[in-house]
């Protein structure tokens, strides 16, 4: 019976080929079982199609729009910045760097590339400060203390967030 119903549902939905459709149509006309089942399924199909949609509350649309407005109002300022401005600034810097590179590359005398040292770099007299001198200073100690306080603050924020997420669940 399931096979007959499956065929008939496909026929009703229009999900079968023209040949199948013709074959089923003949079966409905000639076979009493098919005819009876077809009438039954057609009635069910009409019933399913006639089911009513439910209606939300009267103020539903207003509530949705209020929720959207509230969400927009709560949005932090950094999220409101137009991304086109960011892209514009980025593009400006890329263009400037590219133009500088092109200018530098164009001003190099490539004819001298065969020589052993074509470009003479200026000599820089630079004395590397001793690391032990830096670490012994009071400024460095203060800096490390500040870092420690900052790390504790970040760790505290992380733990608070974790606790809030747990409570939200």
């Amino acid at each position: 019976m399931n096979a007959i119903e499956e065929k008939l549902w496909n026929y009703i939905d229009g999900n079968c080929t023209a040949e199948e459709q013709q074959a089923i149509s003949i079966l409905i006309d000639t076979d009493e079982v098919y005819k009876q089942k077809y009438t039954e399924l057609l009635q069910l199909n009409a019933d399913f199609g006639a089911m009513e949609l439910d209606e939300p509350s009267m103020a539903f649309t207003y509530n949705v729009m209020e929720a959207i407005r509230a969400e927009n109002a709560l949005k932090p300022l950094k999220a409101k910045v137009d991304t086109r401005i960011i892209w514009g600034i980025g593009a400006f810097f890329i263009l400037t760097i590219t133009a500088l590179l092109v200018f530098v590359l164009a001003s190099i005398n490539w004819q001298q590339s065969g020589n052993a040292s074509p470009v003479e770099l200026p000599k820089v007299d630079f004395n590397m400060p001793k690391i032990s001198d830096i670490f012994s200073g009071n400024i460095m100690r203060g800096f490390i203390l500040f870092d420690l306080v900052l790390a504790l603050f970040v760790f505290d924020t992380f733990l608070r967030k974790k606790l809030n997420n747990k409570q939200a669940e």
Binding site: L53, D54, E55, P56, F60, T61, V64, M65, I68
Partner: peptide
């Protein structure tokens, strides 16, 4: 935003029905 409100009005009945079928509570 009024255009979106129209879009909500147009689809809210069906979306609500579908949600009701899942949640079984208005």
């Amino acid at each position: 935003q009024a255009a979106y409100a129209d879009l909500v009005k147009r689809h809210q009945r069906f979306v609500f029905t579908l949600a009701l079928r899942f949640s079984k509570s208005r």
